[in-house]
Amino acid sequence: MTPGDLTAETVTITGHGGDAVEAYLAQPLAGPPAGGVVVIHHMPGYDAGTKEIVRKFAANGYPAIMPNLYFREAPGASPDDAAAVARAAGGVPDERLVGDVAGALGHLRALPGSNGKVATIGYCSGGRQSFLAACSLDLDAAVDCYGAFVLTAPPDEFPLQVGPLGHLVGDLSCPMLGLFGADDKYPGPEEVAEFEAALGRAGKDVEFHSYEGAGHAFFNTDRPSFRPEAANDGWERIWEFFGRHLSA
C-alpha cells in the first residue's frame, strides 16, 4: 500500500429515529486497525470542501464519515440548496444531531479496520455540535473548530431555539481539542477563554489553541478566510491529538 491510498463512497447510515441518512465515508486502503472520525459539516452543508476533509483523514490512516445533516430536508439536492432549506426550516435540532452522530459512530465501529475507538470533529456550527456529541455520547476524543454559541444562545432571529450548552460541561466524555482564530468574533476570545476555564474547573482534559492573524473558518482552503499558517499548525495538533487518543 502507498501512503495516502484510500477509498471513498456514499453510504447510508441509520440516524436519529431510525431514519436512513446519507453519509460520505472514506477509509484507508490498508494499514493497522485505527480509530474512526465523524466529521460534522459546517452550516453551508455537506459540501465538496468538507468531503475533502473526510478524505484527508482517510489518507492519514483514520476511517472517517460525514453524515449529511440536511438529508431529511432535501434528499438529493445540491449542498447549497439543501443548506438554504435547512436554514429556512431552523437548522438541525440538537437531539437529531446527536442521533445522527451516534449512527455514524456505529457505522465506524463496525468497519473491518476499526479498533473500536471513535472521535468527532466539527467546523463552525459543527464545532458546537462536536462538543454536544461529546457530552451526549461515549467518545474517545473530540475536536471543536471555532464553534460559536457554546456558552451563549444564538440570536433570537435564528428560528430554531438552540440553547447554550454550558450546563453540559461536566458531561464531556473525552479529551477535547479546541482550535480557534484570535480574530474571530463568534466565538470571540472572551467566550473561548470562558469555555476553556469552565472545562478546566470541571476537571476535563482540554487543549485549546487560538491563532493570531486568523479569524473564523481558517481551515477552509477555498475561502478568503483560509489562513495557511493556522490551518497547517491546526492539522499538526489534530494528528498529534488523534495519535494519542485513537491509537490502539
Binding site: H42, R87, A88, F149, P155, E157, F158, D184, Y186
Partner: peptide, 9 residues
C-alpha cells in the same frame, strides 16, 4: 463567524 441570523418571509 456563523451569524445564524436569518429572517424568513
Amino acid at each position: 463567524m456563523c451569524t445564524y441570523r436569518t429572517t424568513t418571509l
